[in-house]
Design a protein around this nucleic acid. Sequence first.
DNA 1: TCGATTTGCTGAATCGTTTCTTCAAGGAGA
DNA 2: TCTCCTTGAAGAAACGATTCAGCAAATCGA
Lengths: 340, 340
Amino acid sequence: MQKPRIKDVAARAGVGVSTVSVVLNNVEGARVSPETRERILSAARALGYTSNPIARSLRTRRTQTIGFVGDDIATTPFAGRMIQGAQDAAWQAGYLLFLVNTGGEHALERHAVRALLDRRVDGVIYATMYHRHVEIPEMLGDVSTVVLDACPTNGSVPYVVPDERGGAAAAVGELLRAGHRRIGFATESLEVPAASGRLAGYHETLAAARIPADPELVVAEHGDTTGGYRAATRLFDLGERPTAIFCYNDRMAMGCYRAAAERGLRIPYDLSVVGYDDQDLIAPELSPALTTVALPHYEMGTWAVRRLLELIRDDPEQSAQGHLMPCPLVRRDSVGPPPR
Amino acid sequence: MQKPRIKDVAARAGVGVSTVSVVLNNVEGARVSPETRERILSAARALGYTSNPIARSLRTRRTQTIGFVGDDIATTPFAGRMIQGAQDAAWQAGYLLFLVNTGGEHALERHAVRALLDRRVDGVIYATMYHRHVEIPEMLGDVSTVVLDACPTNGSVPYVVPDERGGAAAAVGELLRAGHRRIGFATESLEVPAASGRLAGYHETLAAARIPADPELVVAEHGDTTGGYRAATRLFDLGERPTAIFCYNDRMAMGCYRAAAERGLRIPYDLSVVGYDDQDLIAPELSPALTTVALPHYEMGTWAVRRLLELIRDDPEQSAQGHLMPCPLVRRDSVGPPPR
DNA sequence: TCGATTTGCTGAATCGTTTCTTCAAGGAGA
DNA sequence: TCTCCTTGAAGAAACGATTCAGCAAATCGA
C-alpha cells in the first residue's frame, strides 16, 4: 500500500488539495469553515496521512535538517555527549541531524560542507572535539552556522566553549575551603585554550584569597597519566611540598594518584587532589573516587543547536558572540583538610 | 547569486534540459554526440552546477540517505566508533547519515523510525550500544534494515555482532601459549550474550587443550571495577589459586589489578591478566598495560552500512543471516609465564 | 530512389507539496 | 432589484529535477 498523498486526503474529504494544505499547516488568516476543517482532519487521520517532506522542502526551500560536522566523533568520549546534546535539541524542535565527520582533514571538510549545502540543510553545527581555535570554511558564509567547542578565528558566528577559567576557580575554591593554602597545579604543556584558561582560573582564585603566587607550584607536563605522574613527582620533590594538587585533567590525576601511592601518601589524608573532565572510566573508578570538574559537553551541544535554530528562524541578527558554558564541580572523595 | 538550475545549464549549452540530465547522470544507452556532451559538461562546470538532491529525490524516490537509530550514543565510548564506521562507509558511497538516538525508550524509538520513514531514508541501521537481543520495530519491515551490535528476535534482517566466543578463545589461547594451565575466568553475572559467548570460548579453548574444566575457576560478579576486585579476591582465596585470570572486561581487570596489588601479587610475574574491550582510558593506562581483546565496533559499523547498501541496491535477497565480527587480541604487558 | 531504421535530441508529464490568484455564492446596502 | 463586499474554496503555477514518448534528420539496404 502506497503512502497516501495530499490528493487522497482531498478526495476523501471532498475538497481541493489547497484547502487540505491550508488546514494541515494551520495557515494564519486562512478562511476555512469549521465543518470543512473537521472533515479534512478526520480524513487525514483515517488515511494516516503524513506530508512528504521532500516535496515540501522542494517548495518551501526548508528541509528541517541541520548538518553536524565534527573533526572526530569516535576517539573521545566527549564527542558523543556533544552529539547527543545537539541531537536531542534538534529532535525536540522537529529537526533531524546529518552527521559528518571529517577526521580533521581540510579537503574532506570542504567536501563535507559542500555536500551538506547541496542537500540544503537549514544550518550547520561546526564542532571540534576539544576546545581550540579553528578557521571555519568560508563556504559556511552561505548558511546559518554555530561553532561548538571552539573559537572561530574568522567570520563572526556564535560559538560556545567551556568556561575553563570558572571551572578551575571552582576546583581551587574547593581546595581553599578545605583549608589548603599551598596548592600545586599540574598543567598541560601544550598551548591550548583549556590550559591557559585553567591556569588563569587557578591564579585568580589564589589571588582573590590573598595567597601569593609561587611559580614553583605550577608544573607543566604532557596531559596524560605519565605526565601526571611526573608532575606530581616534581611537586613532591619541592622543599615544602603542596598539600593539594589541582590537575589539568583526570588522566594526570590518575598519574598523580600513582605517584602518591609510591610515596606512601594517602589521599585525601596526606594529599588532596582535584581533576578536570569528569571522565567516566577514571574519576568515579579511582580509589578514592576523584573530585573533579565536569565538562558540559551535552549542554554545549544543546546550546549550539538552540542558538542555531534562533539564527534560522529569526532574521540574521549579527550579534555573533561567544558563550561560556559553566563547568560544574563534582564532589567525590579525594579532597580533605590539609594534614596536621 | 542563486544556485544554477539544470535549465541554466541547458540554456548555456544550447540544448534541452532532458539532454543535460541524461549527460550528467551518465544514463546507459543514451545517445548523445560527443560534441554535445562536451558542451554540456563544460557549461555545467562553468556554472558550478550541482543538481538539487531534493528535486531529484522527489522524482526518483531515493534520497541517498540512511537513518541510524541508536539507543544511546553518548554514554559509551564504543558508540562513537560504530557511528564513525557507519558514517565513513556511508560517506564513501555518497550517502549521508541521519542520526537519531532514542534513549532506549520504546515510544521515542517508534517516533524516530516513523520520522526517518517519513523522510524517505533509503535504509535504516538499527544499533544498540552493547551486544544484546532486541525486538525491532515492525515499521522497519517497510524499508531495508540492518541490525548493528544486536541479535534481532523478530523479523529476518541481517545483523552483525562481535565474535565473543572467538575473542575469548584468543585471550585464553594467549594464556595457554604463555604456559598457564590454571586459568580463572572472572565473568559478568548478568545474562547477556557477551557473557555466555565469552564463557563458551573459555570452556572450548581449555577443552581443546585437554585441560579439565574446574567450576571453581569461574566466578561471576558485577562487570565493574569492584566486581572485578571481588572476583579476583575469590579466586585468590581458592586452595590452589590460578596463575592467570581472564576478565570479562577491562573494568573488571582494573579491579583485579587492585586486588592483586593488595596481596602483593605482581603482574605479570606472579599473575597474568587478560581483559576484554580494549577501553582507551583503561587498558593502555594501567601499569603494566593490559593485554586485552578489542571489540570491533568501527568494523561492525562499516559492515552494517555496506550490507545495507547491498540490500538497497540489489533485489531483496532474503538470506538474512548474522555476521560475527572477529575480536582481535591486543598484546600488552600483563601476560607472562606462570610463576616458578 | 524509397521506405525503414537509427541517431540525436526535445517537449511534456511527473514526483507531492505550497501558495497565489481567481471565482462562485451569499448577504448587505442603496 | 442591482451592485459591492465578504466568505469559503478551488485551480493552477511554481519548486527542480528525471524520464518517457515522439520527432526530424541522417543513414542504410535493396
